[in-house]
């Protein structure tokens, strides 16, 4: 499980992600271009993929049930910290969460599952083609 590894990568992801999102939000205001906000979403998703992949890569023995629990914890922490930031730092309220936020959360959960899938071992069919040469060697021995 390696909880400290999880905490390290999660904190790194969250701090970087938050600064990227704020950067794009300020840029959107400065440039008067609303579309620039999507840059924050894209960078946040990419950072999620990178750091969750880095975490899962170090714990290959996790079962799918355990991976789902890790995804639940990762997303739960993101949600809690986002709400806390919204309420205490930005002075907003829970009702300010828009459809855009819900959509980005759904995308984030999907990204976490992708990272978990890419790093999982042989307990499910892989995206890459099977290594026939390795299988042949096994049969031969």
């Amino acid at each position: 499980m390696r909880p400290l590894r999880f905490i390290f990568f999660f904190i790194a992801y969250y701090l970087l992600g938050l600064s990227m999102v704020y950067f794009f939000v300020f840029s959107a205001h400065y440039l008067q271009q609303g579309n620039v906000i999507f840059g924050g979403l894209v960078s946040s998703i990419l950072l999620t993929l990178l750091f969750s992949w880095l975490y899962f890569r170090g714990v290959p023995a996790l079962s799918w049930c355990q991976r789902s629990e890790v995804i639940g914890v990762w997303f739960g922490l993101v949600f809690l910290l986002d709400i806390a930031t919204l309420i205490f730092v930005s002075g907003g309220s829970f009702s300010q969460l828009s459809l855009f936020s819900l959509w980005s959360y759904a995308l984030q959960i999907l990204t976490l599952f992708v990272a978990a899938y890419l790093t999982s071992g042989g307990d499910h069919p892989r995206l890459s083609s099977p290594n026939l040469a390795l299988n042949q060697n096994k049969d031969a021995s």
């Binding site: 499980m1 355990q66 629990e69 890790v70 914890v73």
Partner: peptide, 15 residues
């Protein structure tokens, strides 16, 4: 439950 999930369940409700 895994240690991580148990930790989060303990943390989340008070937060």
């Amino acid at each position: 439950f895994t240690r991580l999930f148990a930790w989060f369940a303990t943390l989340s409700i008070p937060t």
